[in-house]
Nucleic acid binder design. Structure first.
Lengths: 342, 342
DNA sequence: CGAAGATCGTGAATCGTTTCAAGCTACGCT
DNA sequence: AGCGTAGCTTGAAACGATTCACGATCTTCG
């Protein structure tokens, strides 16, 4: 059974293909009786439009094309992130998805799995499926792949990275790191450590830079940096061990993300180290778990949903405005959330 | 600029469209000189295949079509889950994605957001884009939507649900609940509670049933059930409060998932209740955090990745075998992981 | 020299949908 | 009756890439 086509529906309903198409796209042009008959036929045959044919015929078709014909089935947007297993990423994606849904568009999530190659394949996929737009947390900055996207008329918005001639949404991670370290210093901590993990995407590096900057500003010493194998709770536990092996043991720790911080805190507690008395811990992200962990975690809240929402808005705007679109670069500032770990 | 088509490339290179197509799809059939000329033209014009047209022409195209022509760009599989924010779901999806990737296919993740309507739209999207297959954690059992998928030649595999005439992968949640409760009983706990949260998908209900069954088998009393507003850590903290308000306070708690259990445990600790001495806690899922939480959590490990992998295998098989495919229903058994919370 | 291959290229037919000029009715109006 | 109009429906022409039966050349060899 190859595909039930519009033609079979037409035969079944005893009308022409044009009419079936009309029922599908501008029902108001079709007499009620006919419409019902056609709809029944569609039901019975389980007919579904062949999107390839539809698009082939319709051509690229910008959103705001003013021909008052059918509302074309809204095209989907792709959301490409490095790791769909990471709560931060899924929160951003979810913020974006909600906004897209409100505008009547569907969202497809793709994971680049930290591989530039896979990212490229994902972008190609979006081109092939003629996505309306793509929200990308880029792995490197694959100029070629992205150019290809835009050449194909896909609206592109970068997240956590910026590039000329493109819309982007970023969080000021340097500021975030700065705030985190400043908070520890203000709490009287003198020996600060920064715990991070591989792979180290730019935003994570920036957090460290911000912290170092803050420390320098305060005339503090050096920022001791521990790099773990991952940005996970398990890696956090390992970091705790390494931390305690230092002498003197740092009394203030800034972790590159909450998962690390939670793992680290839990392991410290297990080893009888008091948090925050002996070691104060600051995380980054403010994932949901941060507030319900053993010692509710002081952290830098990224406006995660807002990042996704902004990105979606930009993508929708670019999609809607077409050529006339002016690219905007949005920068959001993170916020310190003080809880009990400091 | 409407679209550079294969025809313009042909004109530019001074060959026929057929030849251009051959250069694209089976370069070995074309003489080297011609090939280079065409490629140059493609470069100069910045030509990109119109995937809609390609697909339209190629039709559904089973995987194993034995014509040794071009390797058709492998089609993508869709993974539809209820909530891409939930670590369990993303782990399953990731297991599936890895397996699909190995077979050379791409994966698209869709979130149904607990809405039957959105699920339906997602399925339609997959049909329209001619996905090779769909792995679905169904929200209800939208027979119509799924039938439509299959009618369009999309391989369908159900996860955590079963239906006749379809491939499916399930975890035996009743057994899981049974094991959890049995473990608590064996640890000498006498007043058991089950903490769950809305929305309550079937698997979660089954966990409760299994626990109740186990309790009955052991001649124990009633299973006190607390239903929270969500299956999240925050909901878990709230559950702790409700739990302590009971008298007598249960001494063994089985949570419908780890997130609830972690939130609950942390709140209990904060209130000075000892875990496991005063209250033993068992979670469900064995997410990564379970082992790195404050009190490493005893839990029921679902073979999450395995679920995804199995599902992907089944989908690939169905896709490859076509009509001759025999549907299989795989049931995996969860495993008790004993840690310090019991 | 001529026949049989081998090697390349051609161009029309095709996929399923949308679009649009044109046709058909039935109706109202003068 | 004649004519204009509104309301529906029709059918054929696109859209752009792939396929395939068929020619056109060129080799090779008896």
């Amino acid at each position: 059974m190859p595909q039930t086509s519009i033609r079979e529906v037409a035969r079944r309903a005893g009308v022409s293909v044009g009419t079936v198409s009309n029922v599908l796209n501008r029902p108001d042009l079709v007499a009620e009786a006919t419409r019902d008959r056609v709809r029944a036929a569609i039901q019975e045959l389980g007919f579904v439009r062949n999107e390839s044919a539809r698009r082939l015929r319709q051509g690229p078709g910008r959103a705001g094309s003013d021909r008052r014909s059918a509302p074309p089935r809204p095209r989907a947007f792709g959301i490409v992130v490095e790791d769909l297993t990471n709560p931060y990423a899924t929160d951003v994606a979810r913020g974006a998805e909600l906004t897209l849904n409100e505008a009547g568009h569907d969202a497809l999530w793709l994971s680049s799995d930290w591989s530039a190659d896979k990212e490229r394949r994902g972008l190609d996929l979006l081109v092939e499926h003629q996505a309306a737009g793509a929200l990308i947390v880029p792995i490197g900055l694959d100029a070629v792949g992205i150019e290809r996207l835009r050449a194909a008329g896909v609206a592109v918005v970068l997240i956590d990275h910026a590039a000329p001639e493109m819309c982007s949404v970023q969080v000021d991670h340097v500021a975030g790191g700065d705030i985190a370290a400043a908070h520890l210093i203000e709490r009287g901590r003198e020996r600060l450590a920064f715990v991070t993990g591989r792979p180290q995407p730019l935003p994570v590096v920036e957090r460290g830079e911000g912290a170092a900057r803050s420390l320098a500003k305060a005339g503090g010493g050096e920022l001791y940096t521990l790099t773990q194998e991952a940005l996970s709770p398990t890696a956090g536990r390992a970091a705790a061990e390494r931390l305690l092996a230092l002498s003197p043991v740092p009394d203030g720790v800034f972790c590159a993300n909450d998962l690390l911080a939670i793992g680290l805190t839990n392991e410290l507690l297990r080893r009888g180290v008091r948090v925050p008395e002996d070691v104060a811990v600051v995380g980054y992200d403010d994932i949901e778990l941060a507030s319900s962990s053993a010692v509710p975690l002081t952290t830098i809240r990224q406006p995660r949903l807002a990042v996704g929402e902004e990105a979606a808005e930009l993508a929708l705007a670019e999609y809607g405005e077409g050529e006339s679109h002016l690219h905007r670069q949005v920068i959001l500032t993170p916020e310190l959330i003080v809880r009990e770990s400091t």
